[in-house]
């Protein structure tokens, strides 16, 4: 893993330290969890606004990624896996986007997470943008799937910050269900 960046004097601290992970998925449902775990790479860590923009300036935007690629933004210490201690009782909101929207939506979502706009305490674990051939998918992971007040608040904030058409379908899936059917979406 990359070294953890120490905040620098004069920088604007974020509420949490975050890691950006990258993975490429083999197409198909039955992805071996071990292989998937091994495909995850931390590509950046940051804890201030300035470090975040510095990282953003060299990272590829979601629309520039090819194949079945995933970019993950997670709090430091939480691995973007269903089985991670912070995720195992959790779930995620899934938003399917037509091609062409992912980069803008992903940046809007990241800004809302880093700026603590969701107002759900410690509940947000991270978010993923998944590049697929026909569509792109954004998901926001939270800790407690059965906390309906929190999940509804996350959905409403997500709708607002992504600025999506009103008829966009959003679906919540628990990580337990994902583990059971070996499928993320």
């Amino acid at each position: 893993r990359t070294r953890s960046l120490e905040p620098i004097d004069g920088h604007h601290r974020l509420q949490y330290t975050y890691c950006i992970w990258y993975s490429r998925r083999t197409p198909g449902k039955l992805t071996n969890p071990l292989t998937y775990d091994q495909s995850l790479r931390i590509i950046a860590t940051f804890s201030t606004v300035e470090q975040f923009w510095s990282v953003q300036s060299y990272l590829l935007r979601p629309s520039e990624l090819s194949g079945h690629s995933d970019l993950h933004l997670f709090k430091d210490g939480i691995k973007p896996l269903w089985e991670d201690d912070a995720n195992k009782e959790g779930g995620k909101w899934i938003v399917r986007l037509r091609k062409g929207l992912a980069s803008r939506c992903w940046e809007n979502l990241i800004l809302a997470i880093l700026g603590e706009q969701f107002m759900v305490g410690e509940e947000i674990c991270g978010a993923v943008v998944s590049i697929r051939s026909q569509e792109d998918i954004i998901s926001v992971w939270n800790k407690t799937a059965n906390d309906s007040i929190t999940t509804i608040r996350i959905r409403d904030t997500l709708k607002r910050v992504l600025n999506l058409p009103l008829n966009t379908i959003m679906e919540y899936k628990t990580h337990n269900d994902s583990l059971r059917d070996h499928s993320s979406f």
Binding site: H12, V49, W53, N108, L114, V161
Partner: peptide, 21 residues
């Protein structure tokens, strides 16, 4: 405790700060 909150326009403004580039 107190949470560190930033709105979108502030974060976007910070994109162009010399320290971030």
């Amino acid at each position: 405790g107190t949470r560190i909150i930033y709105d979108r326009s502030f974060l976007l403004k910070m994109r162009n700060s010399p320290i971030a580039s």
